[in-house]
């Protein structure tokens, strides 16, 4: 079993976002970057599958040099190999807001040309929590003509197919996908492990292979600006305790027209 997991380095969930002077990207000063939380589920699932069925997990990231830290973290969790597809610092999208299709083309080309042949399963997080685009996994699948399922909360590996569960509005759907295929991981799929000391030591000996990004068609989504959302004006305390309920309901009805 050969599993690829595509990961991204993103600002942590508690990061305060400031806009850079170019008005098109985030000021990274003082921002703590982490492995995209949904990608942790994908890495964990890949590791569990290979622990059970045998095989190797390769993590891959398209990003600046800085992503070496997150790739090393995946290796410490137990991934067997890592591939870095570099983005030049200062290049469009270096900060993370990248054209999804251009990114998918780069990743699809790197997966297709991977040493040792294409994988049986490609895992992604359901979305990167920086651009929140949630497109790249399914685009890579489509570019590689592989079946895919997004937002998966359960995955069972069979001899020639995977069975996955997906939460949609008001229902849980079960899909069967013939291998090879692409799956994007959602919270609930598993509980990602923390790297232990043995893993961290082992990761130091593993190499991160650099593979140049394939030349792909120009992006067709151009960033015009990045702004902070309008501030909500500060709240009004209606009162204290249950005594304030009638006034709250009056305001909701008459002032906010919300009831």
């Amino acid at each position: 079993m050969k599993v690829f997991v595509c990961v991204k380095r993103v600002p942590g969930t508690t990061a305060r976002i400031k806009i850079a002077p170019d008005g098109k990207s985030v000021d990274e000063t003082g921002v703590e970057f982490v492995l995209n939380p949904y990608d942790e589920f994908a890495v964990e699932e890949g590791l569990r599958l290979c622990e059970k069925a045998g095989g190797e997990v390769t993590v891959m990231s398209y990003g600046t040099e800085a992503v070496a830290k997150e790739l090393r973290n995946c290796l410490a969790m137990g991934a067997h190999a890592a591939i870095h597809v570099p983005v030049a610092p200062g290049a469009p999208g270096a900060g993370g807001l990248r054209d999804p299709l251009a990114t998918a083309r780069v990743l699809a080309a790197a997966i297709q040309s991977a040493a040792g042949g294409p994988p049986d399963l490609v895992l992604f997080g359901r979305q990167a929590i920086d651009d929140d685009s949630a497109q790249v996994g399914l685009m890579v699948a489509t570019l590689l003509a592989l079946p895919a399922a997004p937002d998966v909360t359960k995955l069972v590996l069979g001899p020639a197919a995977v069975t996955v569960e997906r939460e949609v509005e008001g229902a849980i759907e079960t899909y069967e996908l013939p291998l090879p295929c692409v799956v994007t991981a959602h919270k609930g799929l598993n509980e990602p492990r923390l790297p232990n000391m043995k893993g961290i030591m082992a990761a130091k000996k593993k190499t991160i292979t650099t593979v140049a990004a394939a030349a792909v068609a120009a992006a067709d989504q151009q960033v015009e600006s990045l702004e902070l959302p309008p501030e909500r004006k500060g709240g009004r305390i209606v009162g204290e305790g249950a005594a304030a309920v009638p006034e709250l309901l009056r305001l909701l009805r008459q002032e906010a027209n919300a009831l």
């Binding site: 969930t13 976002i17 806009i19 929140d132 151009q222 990045l226 959302p229």
Partner: peptide, 20 residues
């Protein structure tokens, strides 16, 4: 066409031109 969409879980709003 142009679009505005929340990024960073709504901590910022991205404006993009869609030339595809």
């Amino acid at each position: 066409f142009k679009a505005k969409r929340p990024v960073y879980a709504g901590k910022a709003i991205l404006s993009v031109a869609l030339t595809g």
